[in-house]
């Protein structure tokens, strides 16, 4: 990257940082809410989900970027969907083969990555206009932002909801787990307050 001109490096750096905070898909753009809420009862499934999304995002961005000059405008969305669905199927098979427990825990939320708006939004906004390398950087940055947001949310819910972190007991024995946080209600409340916190931080900074 450094061999390119300064402007070029700047673009890559900006893209890389955008996904983590400024344009964080979950915390700032509110994309991909369904897995964010559904798989964050514990950190391990949340992390696995994040990795699946990174995989699908990178593959589909590469594919879309490769065929960006051949795309017919009215068939664009169909092509994106087809690409994403293919890579989600592959991710699902990989998960079933190498992480069977996680595959069972995530259940239908793995195929639901197909309709995760993050991936189609990145294909449309970035990969269909930019060369491969920038598309990959963009995919990695957005994927990392998504994974981090999921893990933060899952961390809060797992520690308070079960007293464990990554399946290891971290809270003292006397701590009574807030079971509600492991239930659907916990997902909504934690994400609601987390978004509130993000809004508060953003406001203080500006």
């Amino acid at each position: 990257m450094a061999t390119d001109s300064d402007g070029q490096t700047c673009v890559y750096k900006n893209t890389l940082l955008a996904g983590l905070w400024r344009e964080n898909p979950v915390l700032r753009l509110l994309l991909g809410m369904c897995p964010t809420l559904a798989v964050t009862a514990a950190v391990k499934p949340a992390f696995t989900m994040g990795m699946c999304v990174v995989f699908v995002l990178v593959c589909s961005n590469v594919m879309v970027s490769l065929m960006r000059n051949m795309l017919k405008p009215h068939l664009r969305i169909l092509m994106f969907t087809l690409t994403i669905a293919t890579f989600v199927t592959i991710a699902d098979l990989l998960l079933k083969a190498f992480q069977p427990d996680m595959s069972a825990a995530l259940g239908p939320y793995v195929p639901l990555i197909i309709v995760n708006c993050i991936i189609i939004a990145r294909a449309e906004a970035c990969a269909s206009k930019n060369p491969i390398l920038l598309s990959i950087v963009d995919a990695l940055s957005m994927g990392a932002g998504f994974t981090v947001a999921l893990c933060v949310l899952a961390g809060i819910r797992e520690v308070l909801g079960t007293g464990k972190f990554f399946d290891i007991q971290v809270m003292p024995k006397a701590f009574v787990p807030w079971a509600a946080l492991s239930m659907p209600v916990g997902a909504f409340l934690t994400l609601g307050f987390l978004l509130g916190l993000v809004a508060l931080i953003t406001k203080k900074r500006s």
Binding site: M67, M79, L82, I90, L93, L94
Partner: peptide, 20 residues
């Protein structure tokens, strides 16, 4: 209009078949 779609379908089908 659709050669890319048809080609891609074959390619993706092949990809899924191999992985499976």
């Amino acid at each position: 209009q659709s050669w890319l779609l048809i080609a891609a379908s074959f390619f993706f089908g092949l990809l899924i078949a191999i992985t499976n």
